Every structure is written in structure tokens, then in C-alpha cells.
Simulated assay, not measured.
Amino acid sequence: MTPITEVEGRRLALTNLEKVVYPATGFTKGEVLHYCATTAAPLLAHLHDRPVSFLRYPDGPDGQVFFTKNVPPGTPAWVQAAEVPRTEGPARMVLIQDLPSLMWAANLVTEFHTPQWRADAPGAADRLVFDLDPGAPATVVECCEVALWLRERLAADGIAAYAKTSGSKGLHLLAALVPVASEDVSAYAKELAVEAERALPGLVTHRMTKSLRPGKVFVDHSQNAARKTTATPYTLRARTTPTVSAPVTWDEVADCGEPERLVFHAGDIASRLERYGDLLAPLLDPGRAHALP
């Protein structure tokens, strides 16, 4: 019999809690749910009002992995959704607005991915993002060097940037914007990526071409496009171990001498929140948003 749990007045069937999701560490589905529950405050804050795409890995990262954008079949009626325009026609996508919805989604075993705009203003970006992706043998250490350059370049335009790990190999830079058309943000981000390549020619490429990427950091500006999404802050990732897309301080970026120093797992996040609070909280404050130059 499937156990039923009540979360803030909503009845949920939380299934297969002993199932091992991350075989390399023995991390279970129950631990996935515990992580999401204990990290709910900042996770929900960054999910709020943003249509969610799910990367699902119900049998762990070594099993079937698939991306879901539309509201999944069987979604409870109380889980909110929003109609989102697409070139192929409007779609309905999930909004994770409260703890019951978060726990329902976590029970599906998902990564959370969100766009740079909110559901009430599709295509009006209120965030700028750079995804710094290292091409082997480059690592996150090289990403940190590029991130520091981009931070200074953005500051020259009056924009404060914040960093988080991707939870995979690289680093994400984010900034809060006064809402503006995604096309304008994309164009600005591409300009800065090209500048970064000119300033750091042996280290950076702004192009996705695989033959250009070994040993360099690909400054991916494309995730500013309205149709694109980025791993949500604090989401677990479908990696061999339960890594998290975790906010980091600029001191940690500057002092990153070894890749392992910027790898954070589910068990690391509670103590980091206790020590730092939500390092990405400024992204949530409209008063700290910047106008695009």
C-alpha cells in the first residue's frame, strides 16, 4: 500500500522512498525528498512564478533520463500551471509555488530548470545568465578565471553578478535585470561573450563548435533566449552523485585552485545556508535589478 503524507493540508503519495537514486553513494529517493524539504525556502523562492521544465531520472542518472515541459499526466489539480506561448503553439507548464507542489515534483525525481522570465511576462527577462562550460582538459578552475573577468566587465556596466556552480562541470553567472525583451538580453550577452574571447583568446570561446572547445571555456550566452532554461539554484542534478547547483561566494571563485573545491552535494547545503544565507537573494529583490545598458 502506498503511504500517504499530508503536506500543508495536501495529501501526497510519496513512493519508493528506499529506492537508491544515486548508486555511487547509496543516496535514496527518500533523501532526495528530505533535501528538497529542508532546502524548500530558497528553492521555492527561485522557482516562484517561473514555468518549470523537469529533467526526470526516476531510476537514477544511469537509467532513463527525459525532459518534460508540459504538465505531466496525473498532476494533482492543486498544482498551479501557466499557459506559455511557444512558436508551435501555447503550452501549459507547471508552477512550483508551495511546499506541497515541490514535494510532489521531487517525488518524480527531477532536476528543475527555469527560464529567465516569469509566467506573467513571457519573454520579458528579469535575469541575465552566462553558462561557463569547460572543454576538457579545462575544468571549473578555468571557469572561475573567466567568471572573474565577466564580473568586472558587468560591473563596468553597473550590473552586479552572482555565481553558482552548475552542479555539473561548470559555473553559472546571474544578474538581476529590470525586465526587458529576451532578445535584447541575448544580444548584450553575446557581445560580452565575444569581448571575453578577445580579452582571453587562449581561454574563451563564444561559439558552441566542439572543435573549438578543448582546453577552453565556452561562454554560453544562448540561455538568455526566451525559449531556453537554466538549472534552478539549489536543484539536485542527475549526476553520478547528488550534486547541487549551489550558490558560491566570489572569494570561493577567486580561491578555486582545484575543481573539487567547487563541488557541493545535498549534504553540504544546510550548513552553507546557515553560514551564508541565500547568496542569490539579491536576484529576488526588484530594488536591486539593473537596467540593461
Rank of each mutant, 00 (worst) to 15 (best):
A199T: 10
K228Q: 14
T28W: 04
P51E: 13
V129P: 09
A254C: 01
K69M: 12
K190D: 07
A124Q: 14
L279I: 06
Y22A: 10
S166Y: 03
A176W: 00
D120M: 11
E252R: 03
G26F: 02
L150H: 02
S186W: 04
V178W: 03
A254N: 00
H48C: 13
L203F: 14
D98C: 03
A41E: 15
G89R: 08
L236M: 03
Y57M: 05
E6I: 06
A189G: 01
A155Y: 00
M93G: 11
E145Y: 04
R11K: 14
N16M: 10
G202E: 10
P179S: 01
E258I: 05
Q116G: 14
A155G: 11
V32G: 04
C144S: 09
Y188E: 06
Q116P: 12
I159Y: 03
D133T: 04
T114R: 02
A37P: 14
P282G: 03
H48R: 07
Q80V: 02
A147I: 09
V185C: 06
R227T: 07
A106N: 11
P179H: 08
R11A: 14
F130R: 02
P293L: 09
L280K: 04
V185S: 05
S166R: 03
E197M: 13
A189W: 11
A136Y: 14
A175K: 00
Q64W: 03
R56Y: 05
V84Y: 00
A254W: 00
E152A: 12
D120K: 06
S271M: 13
E274M: 04
R11G: 11
P58H: 14
T114A: 08
A13C: 10
H290P: 09
S182P: 05
A81P: 02
D131P: 12
P3D: 01
I269L: 15
A106L: 13
A40H: 01
D255T: 03
Q97N: 04
P122A: 04
T5E: 07
A289C: 15
K169V: 05
H290T: 13
Q97I: 00
R10G: 12
E6G: 04
D126G: 08
Q64M: 05
E197V: 08
T229P: 07
K164F: 09
D59S: 03
V219W: 06
L47W: 05
S222V: 12
H113A: 10
R239P: 03
K169D: 13
L177N: 02
T5K: 00
A81F: 09
A24M: 13
A121L: 09
A125Q: 06
P51I: 15
G267I: 05
V146L: 15
